[in-house]
Amino acid sequence: MTAEVTGTAATAPPPGAAAVRRPARVRLLWLLALAAALAACCAASLAVGSRDVPLDQLAAALGGSSDNLDQAAVATRVPRTVLALVVGAALGLAGAVMQGVTRNPLADPGVLGVNMGASLAVVTGIAWFGLWTADGFIWAAILGAGLTSVFVYAVGSLGRGGATPLKLALAGVATSAAFTSFITAVVLPRGDIADGVRSWQIGGVGGARFDTIEHALPFLAAGAVVCLLAARPLNSLALGDELAAGLGERVALTRGLAWLGSVLLCGASTAVAGPIGFVGLVVPHLCRLLVGVDHRWLLPYSALAGAALLTVSDVLGRIIARPEELDVGIITALVGAPFFIAIVRRRKTRAL
């Protein structure tokens, strides 16, 4: 899956060019700063909510104590925080890989319709096949994500010029809108599942349980490993398919494996948290400002930044509407939609 190379993409800098501008020491410092920010986000996620927890009670709860309401509140927020971390990391990493594979700055699991395809598969499984197990959700979501990615690329490749970034984005947005309507059509006759599906479809990490996370972890870990192993080949693909092949890269194999890793991440994330959008779009662009275009650095940064962004969004959702909560999918949409418009308006980002 690749997009037409236009504009500045045809003269994309070699993988080592970013390293000259950003020495490894600077990148390591930014990585440490990002890790510290992520730790602060985790502390805020455990302490902030409808009931704020003082630091001393937070420390006591983390030490295993559960003697009062403050400490009990922390215990209920631990799986929620863990889910926000793993889903945010998965979406950030998947977005960076999708943008690298397609050389499309608009690529994102939500924009390309992959998350909505996974959602449609899960909802169809629930409504028509009695699908209720965590493993069943994950397998259905991965299958739906994979089929949708193939469909969007096929539609975006039609016509003159092949799969340009704009055509892929339009195909993804149109597919996402169509699948949203299909989901509504599937759910409407089933009042017994409508409330649960409606809430899940917004995207959120509330009500997280460790047993659900444990079911998704093997798929998320496998997807992350595949994506990280593709970092160096993705640097070669940034030079163009012909040059990458001349350097000894198996272009089709690299692109297919990297896309498989991103589909695993998107499918498993959607199964456990719903279709959360824009994390995979915003995070890689911000990380490129810190570390450049070298995927060996960009992918780990995107995972950490994605985890931090989703955790912060979850905390903001608890604060804005106290004592009620806004699902994290609403917060990420409020942040990501203006960012998406800004990217579309920038003519120099037609391709990576």
Rank of each mutant, 00 (worst) to 15 (best):
T148M: 12
G7N: 01
C42E: 07
L352T: 13
L239D: 02
W139I: 13
T332Q: 00
A185C: 08
F210G: 13
D195G: 10
A163G: 10
F339C: 05
L247W: 03
L93I: 00
A221S: 01
Q201I: 05
A72E: 14
G130D: 10
E324C: 00
L46W: 11
A224R: 06
L55E: 01
R347H: 14
L304F: 06
P13R: 00
L93F: 04
G146C: 10
E324N: 14
M98N: 07
N104C: 11
G172P: 03
A10H: 11
V187C: 02
I193H: 01
V291D: 09
Q57A: 15
L29E: 10
L91S: 10
P14Q: 01
Q57I: 00
V293G: 13
T133I: 00
T175G: 15
H215I: 01
A194W: 00
L220V: 05
W200V: 03
A307H: 05
C227W: 02
G100L: 00
L93D: 05
M116A: 14
G88N: 02
R160F: 03
N104D: 05
W132G: 06
T270N: 09
A141M: 09
L55V: 14
L247H: 06
V78I: 15
A222M: 11
A273T: 03
V150I: 13
L120G: 07
A303Q: 03
L62Y: 10
L83Q: 13
S176T: 11
L243D: 13
A252S: 12
R77H: 02
